[in-house]
Design a protein around this nucleic acid. Sequence first.
DNA 1: CTTGACAAATGAACAGTGTTCATTATCTTT
DNA 2: AAAGATAATGAACACTGTTCATTTGTCAAG
Lengths: 203, 203
Amino acid sequence: MGIIQRKEREKEEMRRLILDAALRLFRERGYDGVSLRNIAEAIEYSPGTIYLYYKDKSEIFFALQYEAAAVKRDYLLPVADIADPWERLVEFGRRYVDFGMKHPDLYDLLFITRAPMEYIENQECWKLGMATHSFFQETVQACVDQRYFKSTDTETIAYTLWCHAHGLVSLFVRERMRMYPEEHREELARKSFNMIVKMAESL
Amino acid sequence: MGIIQRKEREKEEMRRLILDAALRLFRERGYDGVSLRNIAEAIEYSPGTIYLYYKDKSEIFFALQYEAAAVKRDYLLPVADIADPWERLVEFGRRYVDFGMKHPDLYDLLFITRAPMEYIENQECWKLGMATHSFFQETVQACVDQRYFKSTDTETIAYTLWCHAHGLVSLFVRERMRMYPEEHREELARKSFNMIVKMAESL
DNA sequence: CTTGACAAATGAACAGTGTTCATTATCTTT
DNA sequence: AAAGATAATGAACACTGTTCATTTGTCAAG
């Protein structure tokens, strides 16, 4: 009975079609700048069809947010193999920033866009994000355990580093670096990352 | 000839009425969550009337953004009197964060909300923001001149500190701290601020 | 093959949006 | 009081997210 499987596959392909078009449009014009009719037109279907696959516009957003979280996890996953906690931490940070710079639209989806956050916490996306955050915090804890820092306040250390990385990326993503010439921005970001690493070494 | 003055005053009062209502509504439901009809209804005028005072919705936004920049400047202005550059810098940071925490809606307007940034640069708001940023950078420069830091890369130091402060505030403002219990968030932010100050001391 | 049943896609319709503008009402000046 | 200027209106336009009766397409049974 391969029929229902084929149907399921076709449904999945349709979802992909919708998500790909939606992401491309969101990326270009932002969530609010894109209408469902735009998405429908892009995939050459009628507006009503989309509602057969996603119950409303926000669910498309959540689906994309989940995918963004998955991409981010895959981006960060390899650092788990690094044995030394300090090296693991630095590489984690470097990849976090790198992810944000290379996928500003996904980063925006995950950490900046206003979403009904109360509803999100029950979702898979939240679990994924929490897992990553726990891994980060555990890495900091490992550094603390091995006396890499003078301070032993793991939570504050982790949070402080996150603040810097998030600030770095989100100023970039939301175009608040216009006082720096375009071609210097990336270099400045890299320098700043190296600086916070140096600062953390003597923390 | 008090008439045209009174007219001008009335026009100004009308603008105030619109901006106050708009800010209140934006604060509650966000820029996209508020319609011009909502604003019109709130001030008990017809939708068309608003267009006699602001040419479109985004101009209301820009007016509010300018006011936010002014509030922020007034918030930060007093630190100019602090003679010691290091103390001045720390107090500047403290007030910057404080402003963001106390006026999340204004901070959002200034540093997070997606706005047609290309158009903004010619506006008064941009000048105001640039002046503040220059003051910040000059303070860092003063610290560098007096050998408060080992590093002499003023630009990167200033940017790094800004990244942290902005990350701190924007994670708070956009509700990405839900993994920390509500009642601990402010304390964590304060601890993190103190930590970055300590880190900067040995920079 | 044809038929009947089910699923998928449609597009008109509803209530909302930002914005414009001819019309109406109000106030100022003669 | 009449004429002129200014302010306010609300209907209208093209858009939005969303729903749903209707049409179209697919596939198994007779």
